[in-house]
Amino acid sequence: MIWTKITYRLLALITGLIAMNFIYERWFHESDLQLHSSVINKIRAVSEETKVLYLGESSNNTFRSGESDERSISTMIDSLLPKVKVSGITNEASHSGIYKTLLKNIDEDIDVVVITLNSRSFGAGWKYSSLETPLQKSMVMLQNYPPLLNRLLLSFKNYDIKSAEERSKQVLAAWSEEYLSFEGARPYSTTNSWDYHMAITGIKDSSGQRNQAKTELACHYIKSYAFELDTVNDIRIKDFDEIIRFARSKKWKVVLNLLAENTDKADLLVGSDLLAIMERNRKKIVDYFQSRNVAVVDNYYEVRDSSFIDQNWTTEHYDQFGRMTIAQNVADEIRRQFYSKH
């Protein structure tokens, strides 16, 4: 008797939920999308003729004011491949976890996806950034579930939700607990201790005075690049693996665009220890994805210090020459691999 009652009520509930999903989709879904996941507009803006889709973060469309060519990297690639329509989706502070969800919302019949691969995004400072919670939140409504279920997941906060304080603790834990390897003994063994060491010793100018601005920037370079990439367990790598699997299931070709880092400045401010770690991480990334038959455009050392827009911070924001270098390399790779007849 009780089971019959429960069964009838469960059936009524399921029927009600289906009806609610219809009502929600018809009258409420779009406004929720605009409110919580406005990135959907960028996906919708991708033209139907698109054959190459470029996914990037702010590196794609940041330019120096007064430049004669303010085009984004993806627009430059489009002009370099005149017979193929290239479109770009730019979402600030994105990484593989975000690209994964964005790609699952692409309906267009595309051939190639170019995904920005930012080596800094593998570091703790980015992985546990306070931007991560709003980014993850903005992806919930874009999952491939019925709209009402997506809204339920958003209402019940079913995403990686952490306060800025919790994120900061994660970063500090990674910086103080993950060990760095050097050739020979060093007075530091973790990002934290290296940062501390740099802050204490400082960078001196020609007159022997401590240059506080340079010292702070050097510390920032250490915190951005001093990490040992673990290709087995890293969440970003796992997300990229999922992207590759998904792209292959859709018969898309994947090109990973490894962005240039300011190695000139890293060398100048911190020196060979940091460059060695950066090189080790670059090699791990390239080897890992090439071993999985994914095309990697290695731009790591391709842009010189003068082409980096932000001289007082670590970013991958390039001037028009830097952007063109990246665009040219990506376009060449796409042409060589997939459109050789063009």
């Binding site: 939920l17 929600y24 906060k157």
Partner: peptide, 20 residues
């Protein structure tokens, strides 16, 4: 009863605050 249940469930899902 069931009208109220559905109204509450719908309201919880659709109009719940999204900030934590």
């Amino acid at each position: 009863r069931w009208f109220i249940y559905f109204l509450l469930i719908f309201t919880i899902i659709v109009f719940a605050g999204v900030e934590e």
